[in-house]
């Protein structure tokens, strides 16, 4: 079992990385990144079986993660770096010319830890299903994970993939929905309501679990445990995880305004003052 104290400490540092990265280039997506910090910290440091020191694209024998909502690249990069996929110092190149840390993740520049480009939304579930099918063909019992924004579920391809996964019993796969209720233009309910999301996935034939406190490390770990219990049971699994966009920085919470805006110098300092931990900045 993962050491929760350590994971919480790491989450503070990842949040510091996120706000510093987007501040440095006055662009990027801090809101969803902050909201998914516990999820990614837990996944890479307590849930997945993976080998950060020896990254291979094929990932034979390893659990694999696909970030479908690629705009939350800051949290992805920070977590990858801090578990050893690439040097932490490289975070300072985020969104800069000649960097491997593109605005949205890509395999193009061979950044260890990234297995698919994402950014144009709605594509990651299909990719994850493909990877899950290859795991089955290879008789590799590893698990495939993916993360999707709730707004992203407005893309039709997601539902093509959802039909496929259930019809073909892709049961070595856990999709997680970052259910923060916000997207660029406002509340998801106002932009294009998803209605009853649980009922939708159930109707599509998925095993649905819910994580009510997606920014509480213990709850996130418990969510993974609950989801993993359904592996190999004949259904794809979805974890609807409630999070708070901007979690951890008080003035970034309760609004969609920090979806894709970076803090200025004062705002950065205010944020960092709220994120005091024991790890070291890059």
């Amino acid at each position: 079992m993962a050491d929760i104290t350590k994971l919480k400490s790491l989450s503070i540092q990842v949040r510091r990385d996120i706000v510093r990265m987007v501040h440095a280039v006055s662009s990027g997506h801090p809101g969803g990144s902050l909201g998914c910090t516990e999820f990614l910290v837990a996944l890479y440091n307590g849930v997945m079986n993976h080998n950060p020191k020896k990254f291979t694209m094929d990932g034979i024998g390893e659990d694999l993660f696909f970030l479908s909502n690629g705009h939350i690249s800051p949290v992805f990069y920070s977590v990858l770096a801090r578990c050893g996929y690439f040097p932490v110092e490289e975070l300072k190149t985020f969104r800069k010319l000649n960097s491997r840390l593109q605005g949205h993740p890509t395999t193009h520049d061979h950044l260890p830890g990234v297995r698919i480009a994402s950014g144009s939304l709605g594509q990651g579930m299909s990719v994850a299903i493909g990877a899950a099918l290859t795991k089955k063909l290879n008789k590799d019992n590893s698990i495939i994970y993916s993360l999707h924004g709730d707004g992203e579920l407005q893309e039709g391809q997601i539902w093509e993939a959802a039909i496929y996964a259930a019809a073909n019993k892709v049961d070595n796969y856990i999709a997680t929905i970052d259910y923060n209720g916000r997207q660029i233009d406002g509340n998801v309910d106002d932009v294009l309501s998803l209605g009853n999301l649980r009922a939708k996935f159930e109707a599509f034939g998925w095993e649905v679990i819910e994580t009510e406190e997606g920014n509480e490390m213990a709850a996130v770990l418990e969510g993974f445990s609950k989801a993993k219990a359904f592996i190999g049971k004949g259904k794809p699994i979805v974890n609807i995880m409630k999070t708070e966009m901007g979690a951890g920085v008080d003035f970034m919470m309760g609004t969609h305004k920090w979806h894709g805006s970076a803090p200025n110098d004062d705002q950065l300092q205010k944020a960092l003052d709220q994120l005091v931990g024991n790890e070291v900045d890059y």
Binding site: I116, G124, M125, G130, N138, G156, Y164, A167
Partner: peptide, 21 residues
Amino acid sequence: FQVGIAEANMIGIAAGLTIGG
């Protein structure tokens, strides 16, 4: 893999299938 009338999903699944050889 019969994916049905869902070409976008087919392309994505194909991309994923390459991961693992």
